[in-house]
Write a protein that binds this DNA or RNA. Structure first.
Lengths: 348, 348
DNA sequence: TTGAAAGCGTTACCAA
DNA sequence: TTGGTAACGCTTTCAA
């Protein structure tokens, strides 16, 4: 029925072992033999059996990429960058690895389920992206899973996610706190005092870190007018809309809104517009992250640009063993404040 | 070292066969035995070996999802919807299937490579999304691959992609031509005559179909002022920007721009703004697709809303065998014209 | 309802 | 440089 390696061997008049060696290119094979084998492969239209190969070699061509929300371009960019790094030369059998993008939806259970699934597949590497849940039990469970994965030979890389203690994982983390501080400091320098903050979901590291930066900036400037002007919600557009509406109710006089990420910022803008406020004439909006479309949505946006793609690409290279892990297993990636033309001082 | 099914069997004092049956839940096993086995699984922290399992059963838990650009939310939405349908009850061993999201980047070679990789993995199903390349050789190659996949027991579903002849694949296709026609008819009805068209990449089915609809509408209304006002480019923001700049050069008087998808529309808007034109006061913009953020980016946008998520979810269910295939193997999914408040007649 | 055992298609070790 | 051949860990007939 289906063509097997033995069929190829027979046709090429060599042993199965030789065919395997040709296909994997990891042992010396005479040029003439190789030719013959490849010809047979071609003629029979042979495709290697991945599971059999993975079983025998006890490792697979799969690389898992965990994302919180695949419909959010933030994670799309990261997944894309990781993927572009894991293909190409250096893999087994054809040099191709398959990225398995797993959508956790921000759910701790699904996160663990996917890690188990990847463990089951004997994945070559796993890249976890984005902020982590701060629940102690879950953190311990994840650490445990990652440890087992690493024990089984799976490389583990965290990208934009805090290090996991004792888990033999490499981490590239974003300087969320520093970015949050810069963003608010910028607004304060422009003269804003009533600044609403649309935070992400609670119990999320990114949420907490960015918010801490914001509060740090306010405290540093001795500004108290913005106290309490914080609303939490998921990292999606609807939440940004709802939170901003709530903030406007709390303080109709606010002159600026900081959004914990760009997707949320879009919802915030919609809410402001609907309230009859203009951006940035009436209210300035500042955001976080690196979505290519945010500049179209809000030409006046001030953002902290996170080098998502670059970081994710590095994560991919590290996962593939092509780049050295950072010293101490952790590297902090800094963002860059991007001030667009029209963001200015409060005008009302 | 690693725990195997035999270890579990030993601990539960049953045969490996029984453990397998418990885990797969596809054979009758006495309740007490099952208990004992599950207890052993738990105690040993056993995780099934996917490759071994796939080898023995000659099928895997993997479902491939091919997308043109994972950083484009269009595909993010589809991937997310497919994924949400393939997990849950009905799978093997724990009822979980793993989605493998493959980013082809619109490249025909990568598309074939990924199909081969999925074939190698003995994927349970493959879902191809988005427009297809119209090169005859490539179409034939894909058809051939899909045939082989189907022969090997892989379910093949096309979503938003034209049917492939003789390939034993089920197709859900969007009515791109009808949508394109409606969009332009709407603008014509408002009085627009000089309408620029920002098309997608050439040799792409979606590009051609949508453009055909546009031309049909123009021809139907006997409008010739827009002839030649078409610019091609990739489905990304930069291309939309470049194409619109070019169209403005060709006809500085145009009063409306139709963009072949939303991502492109964002670039078009940026170009218009930069040219000092207001939307929709000076130029109306119409788009295609269903990106949740487009409404924030361009509150005045008129679009044909494609039911992406719904269609993709259906594709997922069909791939899982939970929903019947459409009659004849093909179903046409219609879009819906969404006219936002402020899109109006030409004002210049 | 359970067990024994024959594969499943590769890989990798040991010889030649 | 090549061949022979045990694993690899599970599924699934066939018997009991």
């Amino acid at each position: 029925m289906t063509v097997t390696l033995a069929d190829v061997a027979a046709r090429a008049q060599v042993s199965p072992a030789t065919v395997s060696r040709v296909l994997n290119g990891n042992y010396p094979v005479a040029a003439s033999t190789r030719e013959r084998v490849l010809k047979a492969v071609d003629e029979l239209d042979y495709v290697l059996n991945g599971p059999a190969s993975a079983l025998a070699a006890s490792t697979s061509d799969l690389v898992g990429v965990l994302v919180n929300d695949i419909a959010d371009p933030f994670f799309g960019i990261m997944a894309s960058a990781v993927q572009s790094e894991i293909v190409g030369p250096g893999g087994r059998a054809g040099g191709e690895r398959l990225a398995v993008v797993c959508n956790t939806g921000g759910s701790p259970e699904r996160e663990l389920t996917y890690l188990t699934l990847l463990q089951r597949q004997r994945a070559a590497a796993v890249v976890l992206t984005g902020g982590a849940i701060e629940d102690a039990a879950h953190v311990a469970a994840v650490a445990n899973k990652l440890r087992r994965l690493a024990e089984a030979g799976t490389r583990v890389v965290l990208c934009g996610r805090p290090p996991v203690p004792d888990a033999d994982a490499v981490a590239l983390t974003f300087d969320n706190r520093g970015g949050g501080r810069e963003l608010t400091e910028h607004l304060l320098a422009l003269g804003h005092r009533r600044i609403g903050y649309v935070a992400g979901p609670e119990e999320r590291t990114t949420t907490r870190d960015r918010l801490e930066g914001h509060r740090e900036a306010l405290a540093g400037a001795g500004v108290t007018e913005s106290d309490g002007l914080v609303a939490h919600g998921p990292y999606d557009r609807a939440a940004g809309y709802a939170a901003t509406t709530e903030l406007l109710r709390k303080d109709p006089e606010l002159t600026a809104v900081v959004a914990a990420n760009d997707t949320v910022a879009l919802g915030a803008c919609a809410a402001l517009r609907e309230a009859g406020l203009r951006i940035p004439e009436d209210v300035s909006v500042a955001g976080f992250d690196d979505l290519p479309f945010s500049v179209d949505a809000v030409p006046a946006l001030t953002t902290v640009r996170l080098p998502l793609a670059e970081a994710a690409a590095r994560a991919g290279r590290i996962a593939m063993g092509r780049e050295a892990a950072p010293a101490g297993g952790v590297d902090v990636v800094r963002g860059e404040l991007m001030v667009r033309g029209s963001t200015g001082a409060p005008r009302r």
